[in-house]
Simulated assay, not measured.
Amino acid sequence: MGSLWSQFSTPNPMFTEDDVAPQDSKVFRITGGYSGIGFELAKMLYRKKGRVYIAGRSDQKGQQGIKDIQHSASAEAFKPKEAKLHVLWNNVGVCQPPVGSASKQVIELQLATNCLGPFLFIRYQLLDHAH
């Protein structure tokens, strides 16, 4: 009964902002950082003086996220501002999109978002910072 009951009430978090050490001089990229867990993580790191950049599929949600945590959501804005990237959180993802959903490149949406997107995003970051 205990595990069933826990599904009806949200437990207290085991990891909170108090558990995060100061992040001065650390740079973070978080995909899907404008909502859910990614957004909460971005807020925590920003409050601890980390330099946080968010990215995602929705420009409108990204703009709102930018307003909320005071940073840019695009790779283009990130690259000229930072020489290093300490942490990249690939938090974005989709599960069970509508049948037939596809990316702008006409790739099945779940594959494009969960696999191809993070791969290309990392490759783009690494290639740019390698020079």
Rank of each mutant, 00 (worst) to 15 (best):
M1N: 14
M1W: 12
G2A: 11
S3N: 11
L4R: 10
W5P: 00
S6T: 01
S6K: 02
S6R: 02
Q7H: 07
Q7R: 03
F8P: 03
S9Y: 04
T10E: 10
P11S: 14
P11K: 15
N12T: 08
P13E: 15
P13L: 15
M14R: 14
M14L: 15
E17P: 00
E17Y: 06
D18E: 12
V20Y: 09
A21Y: 15
P22M: 09
P22W: 06
D24H: 11
D24L: 06
S25D: 12
K26W: 12
K26S: 08
V27R: 15
G32T: 00
G32E: 00
G33Q: 01
Y34E: 12
S35D: 14
S35G: 13
S35Q: 14
S35V: 04
I37W: 12
I37N: 13
G38Y: 06
G38V: 00
F39V: 04
E40K: 11
E40C: 12
E40Y: 11
E40Q: 13
L41E: 04
A42Y: 09
K43G: 01
L45M: 10
Y46H: 13
Y46R: 14
R47F: 05
K48E: 00
K49G: 03
K49S: 05
G50Q: 08
G50C: 11
G50E: 00
Y53R: 01
I54R: 05
A55K: 02
A55N: 07
A55Y: 07
A55Q: 05
G56Q: 01
G56C: 02
S58G: 13
S58I: 02
Q60S: 15
Q60G: 15
K61L: 03
Q64C: 08
Q64I: 03
G65S: 07
D68H: 06
H71G: 06
A73W: 06
A73K: 02
A73Q: 04
S74E: 13
A75C: 09
A77P: 00
A77I: 00
P80S: 08
K81I: 12
K81P: 01
K81Q: 12
K81W: 08
E82S: 07
A83D: 03
K84T: 15
L85F: 03
W89N: 06
W89Q: 06
W89Y: 14
N90E: 07
N91W: 10
V92A: 15
V94Y: 00
P98S: 08
A102P: 00
A102L: 10
A102G: 01
S103G: 05
S103V: 04
Q105C: 09
V106S: 13
E108G: 00
E108F: 09
E108Y: 12
L109P: 00
Q110M: 08
Q110K: 07
L111D: 09
L111V: 08
A112W: 09
A112Y: 10
N114A: 05
N114C: 03
C115A: 13
L116K: 07
G117W: 12
G117H: 07
P118G: 11
P118M: 05
F119M: 05
L120Q: 11
L120G: 04
R123P: 08
R123I: 07
R123C: 12
Y124H: 10
Y124Q: 06
Y124W: 14
Y124M: 03
L127M: 12
L127G: 03
D128T: 08
D128A: 10
D128P: 06
A130E: 05
H131A: 04
